[in-house]
Design a protein around this nucleic acid. Structure first.
Lengths: 328, 328
DNA sequence: ATGTTCTATGTAACCGGTTACACAATGCAG
DNA sequence: CTGCATTGTGTAACCGGTTACATAGAACAT
């Protein structure tokens, strides 16, 4: 490994001088600078971030903690974070928490041990000690809290929008699929939808699910049709579940959207690809990730400044699992 | 931040002793050990990995470089890598290369600067200087090379299998969708399929695609039906494209698998969810990720040892975009 | 009793950077 | 020409750990 000492020797100067040209601070003679640059070039030197980080007590690393990258909503978020962070010279340490506190704590510890300068986390456990005692810039992603800045989409509005849409399009017997109770955004959506359903002249039922896992989606779908075979409008807890429901409905020979309308949540990329293409409530995942990184890096620069959160708008994406014509 | 000095002072010993109990080496008296442990506990100390890494010239970090985490094949890989790495006490630095050499070089540089102890990369550019001159344990994932250990699935066999299946099930006019030419595994599959098609008594056409991006998938599908409206069997370049093709076919009123059979590649989780559920060639992505991490960590322990690669078997997953009955 | 080995602990060098401080040379004002 | 500010560079301390080496007492062998 070529170190700053090698460069110094090669250029016939001290390490301090090399450091000065590297960081572009302090006084350096024109000629000297040129020599040092040449030496750097020649030895193909690039400074050890670890040493740097040790002295500075801060790296160029950001910790990103997600529930599960395997859930298709998160890669978008992650990519948004990465792109923005990368643009500003930061790299990502990645962790999957599986919504498990143990794992989460583990990751946070190693993030800190590695001198990350900030963290972006999609956690339901902000109120735990570990976060309280963490003195790092932190931003929540897809979650909220009064204690930290957050980037999230308006889940309640999303839920309302989904329910309103279904009602407007003439659904009479709505089934609302409730996401896992420990996942905050899921309950926001649920509440939003309930608000609208409660005030409308429709029958409705609620079906609870306890996970967003792929493997279970088809089971939820089956269960749904067993329990509520007569439903003509379904608000799914997310797009995965929605797609599974579409699958099961077609298998049972239902006509979509004639007999049965379905509306998803998230607008993951494959929702456009499914057939019929899924009507859904869009969360701008990539953009949310970008904003979160932006916010975090801003805070890293100005830690004292008052924090602000960003609520992103949700949007109804009308495709073909709901009817074209509104029934007013 | 609480450092080893604080612990030493608190326990009334030297830093060396604290370090000894931390690392469980050297001699430490029973009583002393107890005191130190107590101090650690009390101060809630955990050692700074950065300092450690500087002296040891090696961290507990692994660099993971993927083309694009947003492509649904990769989260599985990533998760496999992460789980195995995590199990063995390693953390991941993540990078998306977009198959772009510039970005790739950038990431590799910062990985090295951060003292990663190894790298797992899905690159098509192993033969570039940057890899040659890298003296880090490296394992290729979903790619191969004679110079490095690799974990990959048998693409040629997968291609053959897809073609054989379609032929056996009676397709007469096969369309082979060729993936981007710069993506190695894509061309392996293509070759495998071609071998079989070339020797069979069927007509076939090849349609080239230049990307795996979601946004383009539906365009490829449309283009396919414009160019080859009479095809009755399609070998898609991956599951995303396959699902888009199913979409387009249904939209055009084709009967699947009656009029048209489709076979995908990868077996991403959503392939089971699509309707009709997709017949596809499965690559054990999660397992591949796990194995790659395993291999890498093994090499980190024994760098001199001769390297070996692992070829994972592919598998035909029969679902409902191909016919039940074989036509012999 | 003496020498050797084992146990226990501390001191200080080291990892590869950054920067406070010291010092010298130069430029410029009076 | 002298004095002070500016410029250019080196020395050494520091970041928070690890470990080579030194030291000393205890245990054991002869």
């Amino acid at each position: 490994m070529v170190t700053i000492k090698d460069v110094a020797k090669h250029a016939g100067v001290s390490v301090a001088t090399v450091s000065r040209v590297l960081n572009n601070n302090g006084y350096v003679g024109t000629e000297t600078r040129k020599n040092v640059m040449a030496a750097i070039e020649e030895l193909n030197y690039s400074p050890n971030e670890v040493a740097r980080s040790l002295y500075k007590r801060g790296s160029r690393l950001i910790g990103l903690l997600l529930p599960d990258i395997t859930n298709p909503f998160f890669p978008q978020l992650a990519r948004g974070v990465e792109d923005e962070a990368g643009r500003q010279g930061f790299r990502l340490l990645l962790g999957n928490s599986d919504e498990d506190i143990e794992k989460e704590m583990d990751y946070i510890q190693t993030f800190v041990q590695n001198n990350v300068v900030g963290m972006i986390t999609a956690t339901n456990h902000v109120d735990y000690d570990m976060y309280q005692s963490l003195d790092l810039p932190l931003v929540l992603l897809d979650r909220t809290s009064s204690s930290y800045p957050a980037v999230y989409a308006d889940g309640r509005e999303g839920g309302r929008l989904a329910a309103e849409t279904l009602i407007k399009k003439g659904a009479q017997r709505v089934t609302l699929v409730k996401g896992p109770a420990h996942v905050k955004p899921a309950v926001d959506r649920y509440r939003g939808a309930m608000e609208v359903l409660g005030e409308a002249d429709v029958d409705f039922s609620v079906m609870s699910t306890t996970s967003y896992a792929f493997e279970e989606a088809l089971n939820w779908a089956e269960e749904l049709f067993q329990k509520f075979p007569e439903t003509d409008g379904i608000i799914a807890s997310n797009d995965i579940v929605a797609i599974a429901i579409v699958h099961e409905a077609l298998k049972r020979g239902k006509n979509i959207p004639g007999d049965l309308q379905i509306i998803g949540y998230d607008d993951i990329p494959q929702s456009r690809l499914s057939y019929p293409p899924l009507t859904t409530i869009r969360q701008p995942a990539y953009e949310m990730g970008r904003k979160a990184a932006e916010l975090l890096i801003q805070r890293i620069g100005h830690p004292q400044q008052e924090h602000r959160s960003i609520q992103m708008p949700v949007e109804l994406i009308q495709r073909h699992t709901t009817r074209k014509d509104d029934q007013e």
